[in-house]
Amino acid sequence: MRFPKWRGVEKPFILDAHTHIGASYLTCYFTDRRWTAEDLIREMDRCGVDMACVSGGGLPHEIKMMNERVLEAVTRYPNRLIGFVRLNPKFSDVLDDLDYYIRDRGFRGIKLHPNQDGYCLLKEPVLNLIFERAAKYRVPVLIHSGTEPWTVAGQFADQAEMFPDVTFIMAHSGLRNDKHVLESAKRVENLILETSIGGVTSPRILGKDRVVFGSDWPTTSMRSELQEVFDLWDSGHLSDEEALDILGLSMARILRINPRRVI
């Protein structure tokens, strides 16, 4: 992939805030294929992505096993992959899994999928316990968005108001379907928009560190999702600072990690 070299910028630091190994919610009913950590690293290398937040995906019964695969992956590629634990609040040991992967194994975030797991982002009581722990461990929560009635923008803002110490990341920025994304994001400062499928919201509307690049690979083409940021940068819709923040610096600050270019 060719990188923009205008305005004195060469290869920017790129952190993909949303990837999967195994499968993704949107691939698992179209194919039996399961993607490995090596597939992900190969794709990151091809696209120039330095680091990626990764969670396990697939059919509901695969979720717990995939957390183990993610642990193996981040152990094998500690400089490239950042583990997010995929939690289903309907599992009785969900808090044990949270403690184990975050506290004991160094995962840096939580991934929730209310649509796939069949609960409401606002009304599932176990979520309160998950968010309390997210605040305690200071880890962000990446949540699928854009599908009524389980996970819509107003519910994100309501939860973000109730848990002001938790950083909520709206995966897909509402999937281009939810008309309340901006209004909801304006209500609270701890709600971040992730770009995959939903597109790149101008950070001028919400302020610094409120929009982060994600691809949801292998659902999408990682290169195409990344190219959207470059296209907006190249055409003047994003300033240098805005583009560099979206591409990786903002997510690095959210995760409190050093933005290290490895490609």
Partner: peptide, 14 residues
């Protein structure tokens, strides 16, 4: 719009 290169990349990556 200016996302044409990204949209083409999506087809190229199929």
């Amino acid at each position: 719009h200016d996302l044409l290169p990204a949209y083409v990349a999506r087809i190229e990556d199929l």
